[in-house]
Design a protein around this nucleic acid. Sequence first.
DNA 1: GTCTATATACAGATAGAC
DNA 2: GTCTATCTGTATATAGAC
Lengths: 181, 181
Amino acid sequence: MSRPPRARESVLDAFERLLMDDGERAATMDATARAAGVSKGGLLYHFSSKDALEAGLLSRVEDLVTADLEAMRSAPEGPVAFFLRTSVMDDDLLDRALIATSRLAQGGHQEASETLRRVRSRWEDALRPHVRDDAALDLVLLVSDGLYYNNALTGTSLVGPVPRGPALEALIALVEHAAHP
Amino acid sequence: MSRPPRARESVLDAFERLLMDDGERAATMDATARAAGVSKGGLLYHFSSKDALEAGLLSRVEDLVTADLEAMRSAPEGPVAFFLRTSVMDDDLLDRALIATSRLAQGGHQEASETLRRVRSRWEDALRPHVRDDAALDLVLLVSDGLYYNNALTGTSLVGPVPRGPALEALIALVEHAAHP
DNA sequence: GTCTATATACAGATAGAC
DNA sequence: GTCTATCTGTATATAGAC
């Protein structure tokens, strides 16, 4: 399990950022290389094709979700509240990777869609024991999806319609009350 | 208030469909013309640039939302249940236009993002009198966003993770119970 | 109103120097 | 490992025939 080269990670970071901020169309090899501070040839040494670059992003997502599930299991406030709270984007590694992946998926990228489905199903399995029934599980997941969707729309910028602070706490309390067994 | 030319509408339909099914990148002028059964020159007669084509989609969305708000006001089951039920994609005119618009928005299209924000705010205003408080309003809107997000991901295809039939009824009941004044 | 032909720009990818 | 130069395909847009 070797640590990946630093330049490779910078390229992935830049690719994510471009997908988030400007969308799939703007996230070209050229723009990614420029944003990462390498030449196109340099990028192509680490990722020999656009497909390889995209695959790199997807595998990063899976790793980050594994870590997130671990944190969720041991969260003092409980998995449901933890899950909802961390669905409000904090610009952390997982949030960025997930939004970038959903940009790819919405661009028709088959494997990106499958990755998102698989990720959602892993969360589903982790949350199921902590909610009353299937409707409650749907509720929790859909609220989380809604939060991600809004975060993805506003990109990294400004204030969106996503509840924060006391409004977020009230929302979590409401969902918890509706969802708990 | 003249009826728009039929060819123009076909072009918009094709553009929507391409955005939904294959994403922003695939929704080129060329592909749109081909799918609408006209030549590129023919398309450019109706929409003199890509910007004009995108603007045509956005103005269609606003019109459809106006009609939807009218229907929501007079829905027998009440605005909240109507809103949630129609957030599960039925492949109707509004659903298609909205998903296509969100593809544009996620491609970095500024006016598309603004249109979606404006639309969301119109729904917000229509729903506010029918829910208990702000947290309940957030809940209803976020569940709807979550439904749209999942519909948008699975595109027009197959079964996604979106609840249907009895599962949808259970979800609506749960949200109604949590949200009603 | 709708077509073909073409100009210009930029995408992904290859070759090979350093 | 990283660079420059270049090939090939395709996107938007223009010009002008029918």
